[in-house]
Amino acid sequence: MDFFHVIVVLLESTIRVSVPLIFAALAGLFTERAGIFDIGLEGKMLGAAFAAGAVAAITQSVWLGLLAAILISVALSLVHGYASITQRGNQIVSGVAINFIVAGSTVILGEAWFRQGGRTPALAEGARFQTINFPFADTIREVPFIGPIYADLLSGHFILTYLAFAMVPLSWWILYRTRFGLRLRAVGENPGAVDTAGISVIWMRYRAVICCGILCGFAGAYLSLAMTAGFVKGMTAGKGYIALAALIFAKWRPFNIMLACLLFGFLDAFAIRLQGNPLPLIGQVPVQLMQALPYILTVILLAGFIGKAIPPKAGGVPYVKER
């Protein structure tokens, strides 16, 4: 029973750390499927987290915080879009630039506005997301097996957590079952064909970039309004890159993305749990190895040793209309 309890706790924290990864990786899915590489997930998430923390602290409203997160993230996405779609600049360079600008300005502005060493003030109850408890969660908890699963795993999460998992089938539906999704994927594979069909490649790609901004906004808001009560400088701590790794690991498919994010989240939760404890059969595993595992797995996958990850064909290439 004790072992079972450990598993439930582990899975619960897996879900908690996976949520921002799922949002960010789905965000990357929209742009990359439209043929725009996005290294800037990290920066957008960080910017959104800061905007959410700052606005929620000032207005004491969690929803205004969320809105601010989405607005800032979309604005940053549009900068990336302008550089890589309109100006046909290098998309990777643009993403790197956004990461730096956000990393610096969140600290500078946070310090100037709140004077708490780059933090935003700790948020009160009404200014952050509360966990939602399913009906009868406490009464069922005592029931063996089903009880803990219902009470701890399914119930007791934030609304954004449920939204993240709902976004997975929704993104699949948008990308694979709507006209918008078909065109978006086509723009990432063969923009010339889409152009010939009389659809604007530019406008299609801009819409993809906006979708990405909205989802990154959710990811950032989750970090500063749900996972913790306020913004802490550099709080994304490489999550944007892990999300990017998950996106590739999932071979640019929505349901695989959820699984990859849960796997990487599990490794993260497991590494924290493991700290110093030896593993049965294997013995002592350095924490650093566990931390590096998502990246190592992604490299192995990219190398084609676990299946093959084939990126969208037109990815990274700006579209130039033929004259």
Partner: peptide, 9 residues
């Protein structure tokens, strides 16, 4: 860091 980002941009 901001200036660096702006230069890259």
């Amino acid at each position: 860091v901001i200036i660096q980002g702006l230069v890259i941009l």
